[in-house]
Amino acid sequence: MDHILVAKNVTKTYGNSTALRNISLQIPKNSIYGLLGPNGAGKTTFIRIINQITHQDSGEIMLNGEPLAQKHIASIGYLPEERGLYKGMKVGEQALYLAQLKGLSKNEAKIRLKYWFDRLDIGDWWDKKIQELSKGMAQKIQFIVTVLHEPKLLIFDEPFSGFDPINANIIKDEILQLKENGTSIIFSTHRMESVEELCEYIALIHKSEKILDGKLSDIKKAYKNNVFNVGLQVEKDAKELMQSITQKFNVLSSEIDVVEHQLNFKVQLSTSQTGNVLSELSKMANINRFEETIPSANDIFIQTVNNKDNGK
């Protein structure tokens, strides 16, 4: 597979503290890659190294097959977590300035800005000053400025913070559209629901080290542990039934809904047991639910970090 960015053994220290230790990552082209980790794990440092704001102490980074160099600035778009705009400057002027710093000509920048301003429905903001806009409005402008020079690699650090749900959705759709158009996207966040929605690949960084990476679906598969949610419709005594089930299987938790005559429980099975269980249960009651639990990105995140902390 083709990779937009390959990092090999990247290490960065600040004085006595290590921000990144031997990080190696491959970020596939034309995908959304989630860079996850608790606060202070080193995500931002890694992103800053890609943007050449700081430089690694050792290790190398290849962008599109070439060693990362100053000229690549024009092919990267970066929306930092700590972001803002000049308060006293007009929206249009400011967007033009930032676009020109990324290497666009003034005319080209104007044409593209007009397109984006219309697209996000903010055409009449051109002559407003930033201090007159709300935080969410300013975020839209920052988003436009980030993608305007059509970079091959986009890096979003917590892109949805500051957006209301409606605008967050608009931005999410724009990100997906950009991916459709062939852009590779690095997406740094600790909001797991957006990871589930967007990311195909993830890497988990914790305490300066990469502790997990790969395709999200593969990771989920690997984290499945044969726990099933079962729902039974019962007519008679639910308690008695539950007891007999508990004797036979490793039930993790259960609840009885008296009003609905429903018995719900979570059961841990061994890999060979599945078919067996189904036939046994169907003799006892009506099965109306039987599904394998798939760990959420959130579960995986917490579990992996805790395992690591508890000193494996």
Binding site: Q70, I73, G84, Y86
Partner: peptide, 18 residues
């Protein structure tokens, strides 16, 4: 200081050298 407090600094230095 203004660039720092308005948080635009990181956007700028991803385009130009500090």
């Amino acid at each position: 200081i203004e660039e720092k407090t308005s948080r635009i600094i990181e956007v700028i230095i991803s385009s130009v050298k500090p």
